[in-house]
């Protein structure tokens, strides 16, 4: 398994790359879906710690995983989101569907 994907119980933790664009979207999509086929995943956590750039292709990747996890009643969250990425998540409207920078119900400050 790709070392950027960590599965613990029903959680899948995805460490996103520095740039989340068209170049690496397919890889994240394929790897996530492969893991979801083989494991009982109920929560996907996208870690934006190393991510400084995301465009609409990245939004597409998150939206796609959200649709898949909703089919099994799961959730998507995004952590370590900086202000640039937060702007993209807000403009796209996806912030209404996923939790951003929340850990155990507590809101973390935007970097």
């Amino acid at each position: 398994m790709d070392q950027n994907f960590i599965v613990k119980g029903t959680c899948m933790f995805v460490k996103l790359p520095e740039d989340l664009d068209c170049k690496n979207a397919a890889k994240i999509r394929n790897e996530s879906d492969k893991i979801m086929e083989n494991e009982n995943i109920k929560n996907i956590i996208f870690d934006f710690k190393n991510t400084n750039f995301m465009d609409s292709t990245g939004i597409g990747v998150i939206m796609g995983r959200y649709k898949n996890i909703k089919l099994v009643g799961g959730n998507v969250s995004a952590v370590n989101v900086n202000s640039t990425i937060e702007k993209m998540l807000t403009l796209s409207g996806i912030h209404k569907l996923i939790s951003i920078n929340e850990v155990s119900g507590l809101k973390m400050p935007v970097k």
């Binding site: 979207a25 999509r29 465009d55 609409s56 292709t57 939004i59 597409g60 990747v61 939206m63 796609g64 403009l91 796209s92």
Partner: peptide, 8 residues
């Protein structure tokens, strides 16, 4: 899974 948000 292109989001259709590019021009937006």
């Amino acid at each position: 899974e292109h989001s259709g948000m590019g021009f937006m």
